Simulated assay, not measured.
Amino acid sequence: MLYSCSNNGDYRALDNTSSDTALVAADSVSTIDQKLIKTADLNFKVKNVRKVGEEVTGLTQHYRGMVMNHHLRSEVERLKEVELDDDSVMRVSVFDTHADMTVKVPAEHLTAFVTAVNRLGVYTTVSDMDIEDNTLTYLESQLRMDSRKELVKQHKQGTIKLKNPQDVLIFKDALVDEQINTKRIDAAVKYSTVSLSFFENNTILKERIPNTNPAVYNTGFGLRLKQAIVNGMHIFAEVFIALANLWVFVIMAVAMWMIYRYYKRKHPVLFADKGTAKPVV
């Protein structure tokens, strides 16, 4: 009880400090500008995706904005090939085209920009616009930043001393984070982000392309007959050359045949048939 009584003055001082902080915060809220972050989201159908993408880029430049992202894609849904002749085919492709864009425009021109973009489409499927109030978040970052600045200042002046030197670095890093957070909020308040997604009807493309099937490329009858004759001459020449390489065996065969004829003429009895042979007296 005696300890509590001796510290009543400290509690009153803490209460006065809290009251002063609350009053400062209330005064800051009343004097600070509202930090309103505006965003929009549009999804609509157009007649020509490429042309509308160029027009959206022109509108963004007109309202002093910037294109942050532009993604266009075409996907083939169905494909058919019809043979026209041996050399070419007709390819019929059915594909759809979509485009996604992210742009930033000054917040004061957001409504005019969205209205102008809506006029580029055939009809709009989704149109959203959101406003987020970040005034208190901005004020919180500022108060934390001021308190950390004051703490670092008092540490440099020697008014207070931190037991761990690493705490100074931690406070400085937190100060940098709060500064970046306030800068981020200021940038989001100044420039509104608009997300766009638009599409068109399916497109049919017909194109005549070379036939890539090698089985259809055959030569004519006359040319194939000519090639067959030439190939036959080549085969005959190869066989003749092969026989010429065997000339020794040819000579030996001829010589053996001549010896056989000569021996048969000299000894006809040995080569006569058994039915026609004459008895020896």
Rank of each mutant, 00 (worst) to 15 (best):
E75P: 00
P106T: 01
D20T: 12
V82W: 06
W257K: 15
K45I: 02
Q142M: 15
F171R: 02
A112H: 04
G58V: 11
V117S: 07
K274L: 12
L169Y: 06
D128S: 06
T125S: 12
L14S: 10
F221H: 11
R12T: 11
N8M: 13
K45A: 05
I180W: 01
T193W: 02
A40L: 07
P210T: 09
L205D: 04
V239N: 13
I229Y: 01
T182A: 03
L136Y: 08
D128Y: 04
F271I: 03
G58K: 15
G275R: 11
K38L: 04
F221W: 10
K206D: 12
I259V: 14
M258N: 12
D273Q: 06
F221K: 13
K183Q: 13
S195L: 05
N48F: 03
K264H: 04
Y138M: 10
V82M: 08
L110M: 09
E108K: 08
S93L: 13
T115R: 03
T115H: 02
G222Q: 13
T203Y: 12
L270R: 12
K45P: 00
D86T: 11
E75N: 07
F44N: 00
V216F: 15
D173H: 04
D186F: 08
M129K: 04
A272V: 07
F198Q: 06
R265A: 15
C5K: 06
K266M: 09
